[in-house]
Structures are given as C-alpha cells and as structure tokens.
Design a binder for these strands. Structure first.
Lengths: 204, 204
DNA sequence: GAAGTTATCATCCAAAAAGATGATTTTAAA
DNA sequence: TTTAAAATCATCTTTTTGGATGATAACTTC
C-alpha cells in the first residue's frame, strides 16, 4: 500500500523540489499540489492523502488555521508543517492544531522520507533543526548578572578561583561567591554540570 | 556592476531552486546553467561569470577536477563548491584546487548571497555546517579507552569520584585514576576544561 | 529616601580534585 | 609467549571546590 502524499505550498520551487525528491520512491504516490488554502480544501473534497505537506505561509490563509480546518474535517489525514525558518511559536501552533510534524524546507530527503513514514504510523516528527531549537528553548536559563557571565566564561575556559580573581581584579572570596551563585542559579552540583548546562544553553 | 552568476549542477531542482532564490536580487545577473562539466567548460569559452557555483557530483567529471581546470584557465572566476553533504575530504580538495568557498545545498538564501558577496570580494566562505564540521575535525580528540569514555560521560553529568566509583563498582582511587588520565589526555587543567572539550569534540 | 539588586569582601569547614608515584592484574596484540 | 596496553588499587600532599552565613558599599528602581 503506497503512501499518498499531497502538498500545499505557494512556492513552485519547493513543490518541484519535493516532488523531484519523492518521484523515485516506490511506495509513495504523488497526488499533486495546491498553491493556496482554498485550492487545498477543494482538492480534499474529492480525494484524501495520507500525508499532507503544508506550508505555513499561504497567500490566502495562515497554515495554522488551514491545519485546524483540515484536521477537524479529516482527522485521518496526517499533516506535516513546512516552512523556511523555525519560528517556535508557529511550530507550537501547528502542533497544537493537529499537525503531526514539522519540517524545514531545507530538510534532507532522508528527513522527508522519515517524516512521512513516522507520521503515517501515527507518530510525531520534527526535523533536526526544529527539534534542536525547541529543545534549546526548553532549557530554562537562569537570569545571571553581567559579572556572573564573565565569571562563567572564565570557569568554562578552565580558570580556577585564584586565576579568576586575578584576572578580574577581585578578591578570591568574591570570585568564589560568583562561582557559588552560578552553581545555585543553574542548580548545578559542580562545575562539570555547570559547564555542560552553560554550553547547552548557548551561554558560552 | 552586477555579479554574474553561473551554475553547474546536474540536479534540475537545485538549479531551479537557486535561480529562484537569486532571480529577485537586483545586483545579480543570472548567466544560466550547465548540467555537466563539459557543458560548463564550453560555456566558459564564450562568457565568464564572476562566481561559478559548482556541484561536486557531476555525471561526466568530478567537481574537484573541473574546479582545478577552470581555475587554471580562468583564475579570475571565483568558484563556490556545492554538495548535499559535507564530506571533509572533498571540501578540502575543492579548496586546495582553487575553490573560494563551499555551500551545502540546504544553505539559506542569506548564506548563498553572503557567499557570493564574500568570494567576489576575494574572500573565502564556508557555510555554517561545513565550517562547523571542519572545525570539529580540527579538534584533535585524544584516544581514550572504553572505560575512560564511561567515566568521561559520568563526569560530564556532574558525578563526583565517589559517585562514579559506586556507579561503576570500582574503588575511589581507580575512579580518580581514570579522571586524571582523562585530564592528561585532553591536556585539560580541570573538569571545566575537560567537559567543554568533550562536548566540542562531540564525545558527549 | 526606602527597597531591592549587584558586586564586593570575610571566615569557617568539609569534601573533592588534582598532582606525584608506584604497583598488580587482566586483557589484547604481536 | 613475550610485550604492550588497559584497568585496577594504593598512599600521600596541596590546592581547589563548594556549602553555610553574614556584612558592606554602590547602583537602580520605585
């Protein structure tokens, strides 16, 4: 049983690109494309795809709204959001409105195929960049002061308290205070955790 | 003075995609495309672009060889390598053969425009992923044993020697030995440096 | 000008890390 | 089977960390 794929996007290049990516896949049936939300809804009245690739920037309607409409009417259709940039808010919105996944338009063929595979099986798929980016936002970075940022950077560079004190012209106890306040704010047990968190939070 | 751009690629979708990306740029003149090395060389006999985008996987000849040929004959043409994946060896080869930069095919419009800008000005441009990846390879990761890898991971998770010892069913001095050998191998002064290096080297 | 935050310093103390050195056993390779 | 590398354990010492607690001056903010 082949997977029926339909795409709604107003960029011909993207349609063409994806069609070309999928055209040699044995188990994928290309149903065609629509270049507006209206055209998409019209098409769905006659034929339902298994997977609907949907740009979020359509000329007549926002992708998020179209997503909700489609899902309400045809819950069996799995929707994969598509866009050029990963804007968290929109990704979240799409997922909240029933989308099963999200792809950036620069996604690789492998990602596209895996995404189709996964969402058809009822799963959720986020392409690497989006997932990474969502994860990044998840990391709650504590509010740290300017001075603490300086100290944090030096700690990550492997400086010890005495060295930090010398470098910043402060006393050893002060350097130590900053270090300890960083550990507390990050809820880290020691520098090892701290450094890892700081790197993951993109602070260094 | 507009920038004359020519592309040599055997994937129509890529040609189309890039053309579409550039067609609205005022200062870029699209000279057209060639879908083989032979066609590319033939074109160059009549007209020279400022920037030549070149896929490294051509049907009749390797991109690296074509790159060298073009650069030998027309040194004033700036070459930007193009490929889907970043294979270090090929990137290096292209750069050695005179290419001024390298882009992945999923590069953003911004990267593409910046790359054209930079190489035309005589600079070198690597798209983010490639640069990152090259940098990664630069980091010389020491050879560490299996056990050291385990310990390294635990250290990065913030475990102390006593905790590591308990977790791995080894004595505290042993855990400490592993820790110290890691510090030595990485030439790190302390865990902070160690963790940072390990993360940058992709070992955790 | 009162309240809050930031940056600074201090003392005390236990735990952990890091450096030096050496030794034994197990495992893998030549 | 000899050699080499990996994994284990030990002892000793100095430095650094990290936790608890408190205090003061400077700078914002309301």
């Amino acid at each position: 049983m082949s997977k029926k794929v339909f795409i709604t996007d107003d960029h011909f290049m993207v349609i063409e690109g994806i069609r070309s990516l999928l055209q040699n896949e044995q188990d994928i049936e290309w149903l065609g494309h629509a270049m507006s939300a209206a055209a998409c809804l019209e098409f769905l009245e006659n034929q339902l795809p298994d997977v609907l690739l949907m740009d979020i920037n359509l000329p007549d309607q926002k992708g998020t709204i179209l997503c909700k409409k489609v899902k309400d009417k045809y819950p069996q259709v799995q929707i994969l959001g598509l866009s050029t940039y990963d804007q968290q808010s929109i990704v979240r919105n799409m997922l909240n409105n029933g989308a099963s996944g999200y792809l950036l338009k620069n996604a690789s063929k492998e990602e596209l195929l895996e995404a189709i595979e996964v969402v058809m099986a009822g799963g959720e798929y986020l392409c690497m960049e989006v997932a990474e980016s969502l994860k990044q936002r998840m990391i709650e970075k504590p509010v740290i002061t300017k001075r603490e940022q300086e100290v944090l950077r030096l700690i990550c560079d492997g400086l010890t308290n005495p060295e930090i004190a010398e470098k910043l012209f402060i006393s050893l106890p002060t350097a130590n205070t900053h270090r300890k306040s960083l550990l507390k704010k990050f809820e880290a047990r020691n520098v090892a955790s701290l450094v890892k968190m700081a790197i993951e939070a993109g602070l260094v």
